[in-house]
Design a protein around this nucleic acid. Structure first.
Length: 201
DNA sequence: ATAGCGATGTGCT
DNA sequence: GCACATCGCTATA
């Protein structure tokens, strides 16, 4: 065994340029597909975003649809901040606030292809299977250590780091998963053909 | 492969 | 009370 050999897990792809907060100051329907292929890291642990969903403030499925509450208030602030909420009393889910301040729109991050900090993710998830580490919104927050402590934090400042995707991506779109309102809107976006999705498109 | 179910915080009626 | 932007386990095929 050569001394300088590394496990496949340790291979870390080149990163694109850091995303500035202004990246999110656009329509949520532009931001969401542009996030596919970007890299999300929290304290250096994370991977390539493979699946997201857009939630617009006029969309009945959005948490902001009925106005501000203590839970969703960050959605009503400026873009480029994290909205973390508890799902089904058990899991954390993370969104990126988008559009102009007060528009209360956000992008739910649903799946990643793990690339950085695989040992930490495996430890937090209690799993080995790379494909299962971040293949769902509750799974990826557990793998990256995202909790309510990350709510309202800016996305261009540590512990968060976002890097734009390199080159083009083949983007698939489909209906959103697990919702009961506005079920027909095709606002789920993903990396076509990726093995790291919560469900195939 | 698909179905049922339990875990339970936050917001709604 | 009830619904919900979920997940992992169990049972059945």
């Amino acid at each position: 065994m050569a001394q300088n050999s590394k496990p496949a897990d340790a291979v870390t792809p080149r990163l694109g340029k850091p995303l500035k907060r202004s990246f999110f100051n656009r329509s949520v329907h532009e931001v969401a597909p542009d996030l596919i292929g970007a890299t999300l890291l929290v304290d250096g642990v994370g991977g390539i975003i493979t699946e997201v969903e857009a939630y617009h403030h006029l969309d009945p499925a959005a948490h902001s649809f009925r106005g501000p509450t203590p839970r969703n208030r960050v959605m009503f602030g400026p873009p480029g901040f994290a909205y973390v909420y508890r799902s089904y009393g058990i899991h954390w889910c993370v969104n990126f606030v988008s559009e102009a301040e007060g528009s209360a729109s956000a992008v739910l991050i649903r799946a990643l292809q793990p690339t950085h900090g695989l040992p930490a993710m495996r430890r937090r998830r209690g799993l080995q299977d790379e494909r299962a580490l971040c293949s769902g919104p509750g799974k990826l927050t557990e793998a990256l250590g995202i909790t309510i402590k990350h709510n309202e934090l800016p996305l261009d400042v540590p512990p968060f780091a976002l890097h734009a995707r390199l080159g083009n991506a083949d983007i698939a779109a489909g209906v959103r998963i697990g919702i009961t309102k506005a079920v027909d809107l095709p606002w789920r976006y993903g990396l076509k053909g990726s093995r790291f999705l919560s469900k195939p498109f």
